[in-house]
Design a protein around this nucleic acid. Structure first.
Length: 643
DNA sequence: ATGTGGACTTGTTTCGATGCAC
DNA sequence: GTGCATCGAAACAAGTCCACAT
């Protein structure tokens, strides 16, 4: 009794300190960003001084003016981006005013035409509307591999039966006797018909979508009209978990207004629920960023409607993330020395923590939270690695102390890697493995919460995932420096950029299945290259002939011809080179997905600076959406930006 | 310490528009 | 114009991390 009381007391005390500490943290953070900001502008001014040269005074003056304009714009923009963050958000509030129109619901179920039949045990059977709707979900997926999986079928059938009338329930007892093929064919025809629609019809649908977007796709947050990310409620259907998910095939039920929580400001126009319905709740919580939420029935988790990545609120958060990673850059050496020291600790928990952190740092592994067994696919991250996921080889080929990793990570993507490690790490791993079964935790004295608490003490705001961000961004920067050659052509530079990006994607294990049409499209490209090559040799011959002709005649006309031919050769050479770059890029990219790292791990200012330094149009690196998401960086970074 | 709900980021897959060769 | 490959966007699943309760 007494003990537990004491324990509580201590705990509360700790909490207090924790909270105070947090306030300090916020202040600390503000200071940081302020000085970053000042640095940024000071450096630029210095540059300008250096550049001013008497001979170029006029030009410089003009540029100066333009620069000033630009700078002012940037200052305004950055000002609006940063200042409010610091002034307004120290209390944790995310906005002052929020107004929106609520979500767009999935269209109601449209019963199938009577001519489309469902067969049970070979005989046609008319289903009640609710049972029929769920049947259509299965029918629509009939071509998909999912429907052949046992768990999927079992879960689907169980949930489907819940929607049936008592009569249907007693009759339909075996999924194998269900024939959805007619329904499936109907949907295939339907989607075919959609593709065949006339231009006018397609245009009409497009316009209607645009109208809905205009009405529901935007909100007002603190004086700004902002794009909403996902304003449509997810329609009902069958749950498609990834990997070996124990819940695949379960019915994802239809979300109704009475399931919806609306979040907006008190003084805004409150969104109206559809006629005859009511929201579950309307709240006014400005400590969160979401506009709409509901609870999903598969895992019981909450889903949200939030703003688009281009919004101020997401942009600021993104910017903050990279600033944290840059602060890690400043102290990463210290932290690395520290964990190397900790490999020698007499305490097991500290050794485990240090080895895990080493993996997170070196291999960019994810933290690895515990998951509820049986609720999701069996996947792991660093802290949740099990004995069965690693193998130790004291010697392998010509390397010593090799660790082989083989496990399923996020989204059940396989992580396979063999890496030599320091002897001390290896010895520690051997120690951690002692007297354990394959299914036991490798780091039995560690979890993400312990690790993150430790990291927090090493650096304010540091968590496991910051290492991924940091290592990804620093790798991009180093690789760009290493691979880019100043006098390369633009396509060659872009190949270098993609290679740098690729190094990061490999580090983060962002794999992809080679596209189904990969071989073919590679061949097509090769044919193009071959064609170009023969074009080139023809053009070269023509140039030679023209030169000879000119040598003989020495007239103006032949001179012109030589020039024309020379130009032609040059053009074709360029085209050929571009194609070859493309082929190389595609081949190297066969099993690598660049998108995720580009979007989530690479400080966009590195890319912006690189573009500016080498005169590459930003459009070659970022598409429209990406430019919108990274608007803050495009505006902020100069050619000398350093991560 | 441990568990749980909640909020937010990160990730793959699917869908749909676009552009290109024929 | 047609069919098809490619690409961008939407959809939505699956992580991380934190606060709070016990």
């Amino acid at each position: 009794m007494l003990d537990s009381h004491k324990h509580k007391e201590k705990h509360r005390d700790k909490e207090h300190r924790h909270k105070d500490h947090k306030k300090d943290k916020e202040r600390e953070r503000s200071k940081h960003s302020n000085s970053e900001h000042k640095d940024h502008f000071e450096k630029k001014h210095k540059d300008k001084l250096k550049h001013s040269d008497a001979s170029e005074k006029h030009k410089e003056k003009h540029k100066d003016h333009k620069e000033r304009e630009k700078e002012k714009r940037r200052e305004d923009k950055v000002g609006s981006l940063i200042t409010p963050l610091e002034e307004r958000y120290t209390d944790g509030s995310k906005w002052r005013f929020l107004e929106h129109k609520g979500p767009v619901f999935a269209p109601p179920y449209e019963p199938m035409p009577d001519k489309v039949k469902f067969f049970y045990d070979g005989k046609p059977m008319k289903l009640s509307a609710p049972a029929e709707e769920v049947a259509t979900f299965f029918a629509k997926m009939l071509e998909h591999e999912y429907t052949t999986k046992d768990i999927f079928r079992k879960n689907f059938f169980k949930d489907w039966r819940k929607e049936m009338t008592p009569e249907e329930k007693s009759k339909i007892t075996d999924l194998n006797k269900c024939d959805f093929s007619d329904m499936s064919a109907f949907f295939k025809a339907q989607s075919e018909a959609r593709k065949q629609m006339s231009k006018e019809e397609k245009q009409k649908i497009k316009e209607e979508n645009e109208r809905i977007l205009q009405e529901y796709g935007f909100c007002i947050m603190d004086n700004h009209k902002e794009r909403i990310g996902n304003f449509r409620i997810e329609p009902p259907g069958l749950f498609r978990g990834r990997g070996d998910h124990p819940k695949m095939g379960m019915l994802k039920r239809r979300i109704r207004p009475q399931d919806i929580i609306i979040n907006c400001s008190k003084d805004s126009k409150i969104p109206k629920a559809p006629p005859g319905t009511k929201w579950k709740e309307v709240r006014h919580d400005n400590k969160v960023t979401w506009l709409v939420s509901w609870t999903e029935n598969i895992q019981g988790s909450i889903k949200y409607i939030m703003l688009n990545p281009s919004s101020r609120i997401k942009g600021e958060k993104d910017w903050q993330k990279y600033e944290t990673a840059r602060r890690l850059k400043k102290c990463v050496d210290r932290i690395r020395n520290q964990y190397r020291e900790d490999w020698k600790s007499k305490e097991m928990r500290i050794r485990q923590r240090a080895v895990a952190l080493y993996f997170i740092d070196k291999l960019a592994l994810r933290a690895g939270n515990e998951k509820e067994e049986g609720e999701t696919a069996d996947t792991v991250g660093c802290c949740s690695l099990r004995v069965e996921h690693i193998k130790l080889y004291p010697k392998m080929d010509d390397q010593e102390y090799v660790v082989e990793f083989d496990f399923l990570g996020k989204d059940s993507i396989r992580y396979y890697n063999k890496i030599p490690v320091e002897k001390r790490v290896f010895k520690n791993l051997q120690l951690f493995l002692e007297n354990k079964q394959p299914e036991d935790d490798l780091f039995d004295r560690l979890n993400t919460s312990i690790l993150n608490k430790h990291l927090q003490e090493l650096m304010d705001g540091l968590t496991a995932k910051v290492f991924r961000t940091y290592n990804a961004s620093i790798t991009l920067q180093q690789q760009l420096k290493q691979l880019t050659t100043g006098d390369d052509s633009v396509p060659a530079k872009i190949l270098s950029y993609n290679r740098a990006n690729r190094a990061v994607a490999i580090l983060c294990n962002h794999q992809r299945a080679p596209p189904k049409t990969f071989e073919k499209s590679m061949q097509n490209l090769q044919t193009k290259i071959d064609d170009k090559q023969s074009q080139l040799s023809t053009a070269r011959k023509q140039l030679k002939a023209a030169k000879a002709d000119h040598k003989a005649s020495h007239d103006e006309k032949s001179k012109k011809t030589v020039e024309v031919k020379r130009k032609a050769v040059q053009r074709i050479e360029e085209q050929l080179m571009k194609l070859q770059m493309q082929a190389t890029d595609r081949e190297e990219n066969k099993q690598i997905a660049l998108g995720t790292s580009k979007l989530n791990y690479l400080d966009p200012r590195i890319s912006v600076a690189w573009c500016k330094k080498y005169g590459i149009p930003i459009e070659k690196i970022y598409n429209k959406t990406q430019r919108e998401k990274f608007a803050w960086a495009i505006d902020m970074a100069e050619k000398d930006y350093e991560f």
